[in-house]
Design a protein around this nucleic acid. Structure first.
Lengths: 211, 211
DNA sequence: GTCTATATCCAGATAGAC
DNA sequence: GTCTATCTGGATATAGAC
């Protein structure tokens, strides 16, 4: 575990500023100031302002891949997740989702990068597509598979799995976006996620006694 | 019905450019060029670039109020909506939602302003709050009231109305944001909204025969 | 109300000393 | 690897002719 280099600190400061004000609105001098150096010194680490922006994307892609790899280990056998779900203890499920959301909200790289993506999403096709994939479809697709298995296992009511996945995932995503925008609402938003998950289970969990 | 003045055309062009690239990234010269004049001419209509930005917000607030007033006339007696819903013909409901979404997507002011809000949402508290209210809470609150009435009328299953409203509204909002980002996905996204609404009715509509 | 010319300013980036 | 000094371009905005 090595300490953060100046190059790393520049990247994080730039990410912080870009994610709040947008790329164009932030000057190189501001970034340098946040790091505690003068603007020209910064050019020893990155060859241009655009270079810093690009480096942010490379770094976040690296972190994303790293994370995805871990998750794959955790669920190559997607059945593992299904087993966890098939008991569907509401309390445990809620806690797990909230833990993930909390991480996603408070990690200084992940949350800032998501905000950066949000405000730069209309600038290029590739960013648009990346946004939809990473912040919407990935979660929907995961839950489609999960629900498919749960229906097959007779734990969940049958239905259109894509719509069910949307109904489960989208409220969480919207709550996340609210917290990104208004961190002061985090507690009450978390409570809404709690209620949402429980209501979803009421609506879609198969009541075995009645079968 | 008077034709658009130069001042109006400046506002619309600026809105168009700001909504794609952000305020800072757009130059006054670009706006002028889009209108077909030179930058200095623009200062006869607005006293600064910031003044144009502010005028956009004033104009959109005016349009919003105008729209809201119409809707209030249409539903001061919220029961009117409940009556429409209480029959809940899926086809009609789907069509109505898709019509609203289509309008919201293709109106040259509304869609651009929503994109502008999206990319400027982190720059000030007031914009953040405005965003959450206008693009999330307004719809959730409306459907909470609606569902409350429908449950009371015995048309819909009982449950946590806030969560139910989230599950109905959020997938639509997410689909809208996808279309804002990737207009080429509009058709398939509309189909997803269709399926979502039908699935929601399956999950939450009370089956009267079984009562 | 539009233009050309111009003032002013500031940001990104480089040169070169230490 | 950091600094000061500086170059350069481009942006906002103004002045004043038509």
């Amino acid at each position: 575990m090595k300490q953060a280099t100046t190059k790393d600190r520049i990247l994080l400061s730039a990410l912080d500023l870009f994610s709040q004000y947008g790329y164009e609105a932030v000057s190189v001098e501001q970034i340098a100031q946040a790091v505690g150096i003068k603007a020209p010194s910064l050019y020893k680490h990155y060859k241009s302002k655009q270079d810093i922006f690009d480096a942010i994307f490379v770094e976040m892609q690296r972190r994303y891949d790293e994370q995805t790899e871990k998750m794959n280990l955790h669920m190559t056998n997607a059945s593992a997740d299904q087993n966890r779900f098939s008991e569907i203890k509401a309390d445990a499920l809620v806690q797990e989702v909230q833990k993930l959301i909390g991480y996603s909200l408070h990690d200084e790289y992940i949350s800032r990068f998501r905000r950066l993506m949000t405000i730069e999403q209309f600038r290029s096709r590739s960013i648009s597509a990346l946004y939809t994939h990473r912040y919407v479809n990935r979660f929907v697709l995961y839950h489609e598979k999960l629900f498919e298995g749960l229906i097959h296992a007779g734990v969940m009511k049958d239905g259109d799995i894509h719509s069910m996945a949307l109904q489960y995932v989208c409220p969480v995503l919207i709550c996340l976006s609210i917290c990104d925008r208004q961190p002061e609402l985090e507690m009450q938003t978390m409570a809404q996620i709690d209620a949402h998950i429980r209501q979803f289970l009421v609506a879609y969990q198969l009541n075995k006694e009645k079968m």
